[in-house]
Design a protein around this nucleic acid. Structure first.
Lengths: 235, 235
DNA sequence: CGTACCAATCTTGTATGCAAGGCTTGCGTG
DNA sequence: CACGCAAGCCTTGCATACAAGATTGGTACG
């Protein structure tokens, strides 16, 4: 904590941006200005660029040469591929993972409780984050860090897809699915969890409005609310 | 090809380094000097740093502040986790993927032929690359780019594990396994492919010498052969 | 009135220079 | 002879300056 102010900053930019995205405060297509970010974080563009490069390597954002950095706006094709990837990973995880112990089950139920609280309180940002993080946290609880990272990146992309194609509905249905999956895990029935996870993802995907939204409108909206980047720490 | 000389360079550094790693020319623990790389590629350190940052985001290399960049040297724990992740991903892929069509099968068999040729010609670098790329290419043939990327990163890390713990044996056994998996896919029996893939990975993992190698000796060897980085384009 | 062109401005791309910290190595001392 | 210490070198960390391209807005002309 004391020494790491410098080294932490670089990773802090990456984390802060990713948080803004997975909490739905940064929308697909949003422009990320190097200058604005540098000003907001009070560092030079060099640091910002390295953080952006890392996020690009994770397929969360992308750069168009001499144009700018943008939060990825997944195409229907990419969206389908990401969902297929998630199905493969989650199904494979449950099918090859050991049953959870009591401590892991307790932590899982704690997450479910968090989801419920966010729903009751209507905390939309927190809910957006939690609904995606559910799947990541399951793998995190298993202790497999590489797979957790994979899942974290895929869920981030899933959130971008949802923000673009979903009418913000289905949160309650998803929560119910999560409860069912958690129950299966609690029973030690990982096979059931695998199947439930599969159908859950299929339901979520088929609930999306997969027609390409009118681009100009989306771009305009994003242009008009560039502020969330600064997030209350404006000059 | 024509315009992209600049933008390509940045990605070219990343790709070149990754190729050197997955072909076994850069060993785990190797130091990657920003200055040497900048000289080798005839660019400034800025470009090199961004490429290195991207590779770090992919968990291929890592930086120790004020010390240097190093090719990752996976610990036994990390190695186990990476193998577990691969098992989950590959098993899940086969279990959720559609059977391959004739064209995909033909391309798959072409890869098998490449492996055989590399074995017969004793091209060790090519073989190291192909043995890992087999699994990535299967997913690539399915057309799922996100999962392909996941697999590419995991296999790169697997190669680092093999380079560190494997006595370079088992190539023939792995090739046989690959043939079996390809046969199952050709028959359209993806379930069999899933199971074969699982046992294949377990065999490979259990074939590793999982005791921590003597560190000083390894470091010394790597220090004495820093040259592969420059790869014949020295001043 | 519409269109084509041109310049100003803003964006990212890249190089360079300086700062700070760690490692090595040689020397001095107990 | 062993141990401690300090100076110099080499590394990365970061900021700044400059270069090149793209967009936008205005203007002149058909």
């Amino acid at each position: 904590m004391s020494k790491g102010a410098a080294e932490t900053m670089q990773r802090g930019i990456e984390t802060t941006l990713l948080s803004a995205i997975v909490e739905g405060r940064l929308h697909p297509g949003s422009r990320l200005s190097e200058n604005q970010l540098a000003e907001a974080f009070e560092v030079s563009r060099t640091l910002v660029r390295e953080a952006l490069a890392r996020l690009e390597a994770r397929h969360i954002i992308s750069v168009r040469p001499r144009r700018g950095w943008f939060v990825n706006r997944p195409s229907p094709e990419e969206a389908a591929a990401v969902f297929a990837a998630r199905r493969a990973v989650e199904y494979g995880f449950f099918k090859t993972a050991a049953p959870f112990n009591d401590d892991q089950i307790a932590r899982l139920k704690a997450h479910i409780a968090e989801e419920r609280a966010a729903i009751e309180q209507g905390d939309k940002a927190q809910l957006t984050f939690l609904m995606g993080d559910f799947h990541t946290r399951i793998i995190a609880l298993s202790g497999n860090e590489p797979l957790e990272e994979v899942m974290r990146n895929l869920t981030a992309r899933t959130i971008l897809i949802s923000l673009r194609y979903q009418s913000s509905a289905g949160a309650l249905a998803s929560h119910r699915d999560h409860c069912d999956i958690a129950d299966a895990i609690s029973r030690g029935d990982m096979d059931a969890a695998a199947e439930l996870s599969l159908s859950h993802l299929e339901d979520v995907e088929s609930g999306l409005l997969m027609q390409e939204p009118a681009d100009p409108l989306v771009d305009l909206r994003n242009t008009l609310r560039l502020d969330p980047v600064q997030d209350g720490r404006a000059t």
